[in-house]
Design a binder for these strands. Structure first.
Length: 286
DNA sequence: GTTGAGTCCTGAAAGC
DNA sequence: TGCTTTCAGGACTCAA
C-alpha cells in the first residue's frame, strides 16, 4: 500500500496565507536565493530576473484564490505561488539548517527570520505575475472559490449542467470552481450523499446548493483545525503539522465503516488517483 | 467541449 | 537482505 500524502488544498493554503500575512506584510525583500531552477520554471525570464525583480519590493498584502496564493508588491507585481503536492512556506530562523528540499530563500528588512519555500516533490512553483483587474494575470482562468464574494452558485449550477461530464471530475476543474482537491471533493460528496460519477447535466440546483454548503463546511472545519496532514510533507508556516485528517469520513478510509451507516468505504481508481465513497450512502445512480 | 495519456519529481512500498 | 520497479498526485499540454 502506498502512502497517502496530504497535499495543500484550500484550507491549508488559507492557513498559510494567514500565517504569512502576520509575518511579512509591510516588510521589504532584501534578498532572494533560488536554490532550484524548477521552483521558478514558469518565471520565463529565469531565476536571476525573479530575484532581481523581488529585491527591494515591499509586501502590501496577501491574497488567495483556490489553491493559489499571492503577495501583492508595491511594484505593482504579485509574487504568485502554488504549493503543488508537497510545498511548504516556512518562517525560519537564519540559524536553522537548510534541509535537502529548500528551493527558495527570502530575506527581509528585519533580519530576525527568513521565508523558505521548501518542496520535496517540486510540483510547487513561484513566479512574478503582473497584477491585472482580476488578480495575477497568470491565473485569470482560475474560477472563484466558494468563499470568494464573486462565487455565484446559480452560475456554477448552470455551468455544471451545461457540461456532459461527471460531478467529481467537474469539482476538480479549477476553471469551474477552484480550491477543491481530491480529499475535499470526496468528503463533500459523501456529506451530500452524491456519487462522484453523477452526471453533471442531471444534477439538480438543490443538490448543487447543498454540495456547495458542504464544501464551505468542510473547508471551514479544516481551516479551524489548521489543515489536513497525512505525513510530514505538509506543515504550516511555523512548521506545525495540521491535524484535520482525524476528522475525515471517507478519504483514505477504504474498508473502514462509513461513519453514517457502517457500510465499508470503497476505493475506486479515478484518473490516476483514488476516489473514496460509501456505496450505500452514495449510490451510483445518485 | 471533453477525455485520456503523458509530463514533471521524489521517496515509500512492493516486487523480485 | 538488497536491489529494481511501480506508483501517487496537481496542473498543464497535446492528441483524439
Amino acid at each position: 500500500m502506498s502512502t497517502v500524502d496530504g497535499m495543500p488544498e484550500l484550507p491549508e493554503v488559507e492557513s498559510i496565507r494567514r500565517g504569512l500575512h502576520t509575518w511579512i506584510s509591510g516588510r521589504t525583500v532584501t534578498g532572494v536565493e533560488v536554490r532550484h531552477p524548477r521552483a521558478v520554471r514558469r518565471h520565463l525570464a529565469g531565476a536571476d530576473d525573479f530575484a532581481a525583480r523581488l529585491t527591494g519590493t515591499t509586501v502590501t498584502g496577501t491574497h488567495r484564490r483556490g489553491k493559489y496564493l499571492w503577495l501583492q508588491l508595491d511594484s505593482g507585481d504579485t509574487l504568485l505561488c502554488h504549493l503543488g503536492m508537497s510545498g511548504q512556506l516556512l518562517i525560519s530562523s537564519p540559524q536553522d539548517l537548510d534541509g535537502p528540499h529548500l528551493r527558495i530563500r527570502f530575506t527581509w528588512d528585519r533580519g530576525d527570520h527568513e521565508l523558505r519555500f521548501v518542496d520535496q516533490r517540486t510540483f510547487g512553483e513561484m513566479l512574478i505575475s503582473p497584477n491585472g483587474d482580476d488578480g495575477p494575470e497568470h491565473i485569470t482562468h482560475i474560477a472563484p472559490d466558494v468563499f470568494d464574494p464573486r462565487f455565484d452558485v446559480k452560475k456554477f449550477t448552470l455551468a455544471l449542467r451545461m457540461r456532459r461530464s461527471q460531478l467529481k471530475r467537474a469539482l476538480l476543474d479549477q476553471a469551474l470552481i477552484s480550491g477543491v482537491g481530491n480529499i475535499y471533493a470526496d468528503e463533500a460528496l459523501w456529506r451530500a450523499h452524491i456519487h462522484g460519477e453523477h452526471p453533471t447535466d442531471t444534477v439538480s440546483p438543490p443538490q448543487v446548493e447543498e454540495l456547495v454548503e458542504h464544501l464551505r463546511a468542510v473547508f471551514t472545519e479544516a481551516l479551524a483545525a489548521g489543515g489536513t496532514s497525512f505525513d510530514a510533507l505538509y506543515v504550516r508556516t511555523n512548521g506545525e503539522s495540521g491535524y484535520f485528517d482525524r476528522s475525515l469520513a471517507v478519504y483514505g478510509k477504504q474498508g473502514q465503516p462509513c461513519p453514517r451507516c457502517t457500510t465499508p468505504i470503497k476505493r475506486v481508481k479515478f484518473t490516476n488517483r483514488s476516489s473514496f465513497f460509501c456505496p450505500r450512502c452514495q449510490p451510483p445512480t445518485g
